[in-house]
Write a protein that binds this DNA or RNA. Structure first.
Lengths: 144, 144
DNA sequence: CGGAATCCAGAAGGATACTG
DNA sequence: CAGTATCCTTCTGGATTCCG
């Protein structure tokens, strides 16, 4: 599948520096230091997917979003939203009323990502029964 | 954006039992005890996405897959593959040669999931530059 | 209301060694 | 080759408290 020998040098990196994030922009999700891989991990994180899916339905205020995403704590929702904002997937708008309100909504890029996640989520929801059965089968056949 | 008041009762759940995994199959990724949400987390995990993407390219043997997914340890790849197999997304086939070989390939469901992940990955790869810039902007404006 | 700060248990994850 | 086992470190994530 992948050509070349097993050595580390087969990756094509000239220098010995494996951990320094080079200046050139690598665009390959399989590469360690690729912003697309990092963003993929941010979105794919435990709460990232659900936050994006929820915002795909429209704008939400913090606590409304917290209720929509069942089980998320304030801290994790807050952290997740910051990360997604940093990646340019959503925008945080402070509405200076008293008490203050904060609206979260997707950017154009975020909308496109959320749309794809929706397709993925639909796929899983449609297969929920299959997955449950596969798990049950796996667990029983393994106990034997 | 979401109708209804802000109370917790707005979720429509009748009983107080929020943590007992009921017998009936819930099909809503936002619900805590939904197998589709769980599977979504399995796939979305750090190595799950990359493993699925790689296998979307075709079958891989363990170490070939390990080389394809840059940075994964033996332990985590092994664990990830077990989880994905349990969800019915891939199959593990032992070829009894000496030394033994093990081929991993996607199930029909896995193929469909991988195809969607590919679309998502392409989206991120195409936006890698935007994301990098968004991050840089966010980080600098935050330091000020 | 919308967080940030702190504490803490448990899970994730890496390195290494060993097995079939 | 394809893992498993062990140890150890880091990170995740929940509960709680406090602030503007």
């Amino acid at each position: 599948m992948n050509s070349g020998p097993d050595t580390d040098a087969a990756r094509g990196e000239p220098g010995p520096a494996l951990d320094e994030p080079s200046d050139e922009l690598v665009v390959d999700v399989f590469a360690r230091h690729c912003s697309s891989r990092a963003a993929l991990e941010d979105v794919g994180s435990k709460w990232g997917i659900l936050a994006m899916l929820a915002l795909g339905e429209g704008s939400y205020r913090f606590n409304a979003l917290r209720r929509r995403v069942e089980g998320v704590s304030e801290k994790m929702l807050s952290r997740t939203l910051q990360i997604l904002e940093r990646d340019g997937l959503l925008v945080r708008e402070v509405i200076s009323t008293i008490p203050a309100r904060v609206e979260y909504s997707l950017t154009p890029l975020g909308e496109r990502v959320a749309a794809q996640l929706r397709v993925l989520a639909d796929l899983f929801e449609a297969s929920a029964a299959d997955i449950s059965r596969a798990r049950a089968d796996f667990d029983t056949s393994r106990r034997a």
